[in-house]
């Protein structure tokens, strides 16, 4: 492979799509971007960014645990992210209500335990994980057909769950007290959402890497919510931003050899900063 960037976008695109691994990467990236934007939109609304970051850290014990047990990496990602989500969901409730203080304590603890377990598994495993850098910052080179298919199924599942609970979840997210009094199963919804978030994080972390998953989940949604206060428009905008950012990052990553996660984060943060600046200026 000898990437060279030309001034003609069509030539560049043609060059990109010549390689099957690049096609896989584009497909996986697109799927992941769509889930990230949809789930992230609710994360921003629910102010659960910290939870989101902690769940992405779960991928570290996930990856090292899977290596130790000789299982595929993806299974470790999913088991640990969903397990972490459940621990947070059940640990951070005080007499049935969401308690911000308890939640941040539990989330912090889960994050610390995750790091500890990750190192424990790593030392038990004895070897070096194939590529720690890939684990942390993501790579698109090794994405297989099977991975793309798994991601697609996860996305369908996540989409179906969100389509079913969307409205009451929105109610519970912006106005928990009224929703609870109105008979919305607030607690059950928050557990469902955390599990969904765990699944999304596990899917995203495989592509973007553990450390930068957070950026793809939160930044496009936060940017969209800054740009418009119309609900459906901001949801659509979040998806569009996430997909475009991922495509741009894949292209950039291909031509510059920088890690994919780094490229996604940089682009996402620049756009977020622009949105913030334009809002501040409009005031």
């Amino acid at each position: 492979m000898n990437p060279s960037f030309s001034a003609n976008p069509l030539t560049d695109l043609h060059q990109l799509l010549q390689y099957p691994f690049m096609v896989n990467a584009l497909e996986a990236g697109t799927i992941v971007a769509v889930i990230a934007a949809l789930v992230g939109w609710f994360v921003v609304l629910r102010r659960e960014s910290f939870v989101c970051h902690t769940l992405s850290v779960m991928s570290f014990p996930g990856a090292s645990g899977a290596a130790l047990a000789g299982l595929p990496l993806a299974s470790g990602y999913f088991v640990f992210a969903v397990g972490g989500a459940l621990a947070i969901a059940f640990g951070s409730r005080v007499s049935g209500r969401r308690s911000a203080m308890q939640e941040s304590a539990v989330v912090g603890t889960v994050g610390a335990v995750a790091l500890g377990l990750g190192f424990l598994f790593l030392s038990l495993y004895g070897g070096i994980l194939e590529s720690v850098e890939t684990l942390l910052f993501g790579s698109f080179v090794g994405i297989t057909r099977g991975q793309v298919e798994t991601l697609f199924i996860v996305a369908l599942l996540a989409g179906a769950v969100l389509a079913t609970v969307g409205r009451p979840l929105f109610y519970a997210s912006v106005d928990e007290q009224a929703a609870r009094a109105d008979g919305v199963p607030v607690r059950a919804l928050s557990i469902v959402f955390l599990v969904l978030l765990g699944m999304a994080v596990a899917a995203i972390a495989q592509i973007v890497g553990v450390l930068l998953t957070f950026a793809l989940l939160v930044a496009p949604a936060a940017t969209a919510q800054l740009l418009t206060d119309r609900l459906r428009l901001s949801l659509a905008l979040a998806v569009a931003l996430a997909v475009l950012e991922t495509w741009a990052a894949l292209t950039l990553s291909y031509f510059t050899n920088e890690a994919l996660g780094f490229c996604v984060t940089t682009i996402a943060l620049v756009l977020y900063a622009c949105a913030r600046a334009s809002r501040e200026l409009r005031r």
Binding site: L162, A163, V165, G166, R167, P168, F170, Y171, A179, D182
Partner: peptide, 8 residues
Amino acid sequence: DGTRWGTP
């Protein structure tokens, strides 16, 4: 309609 399942 906040309690209704589904998504508009």
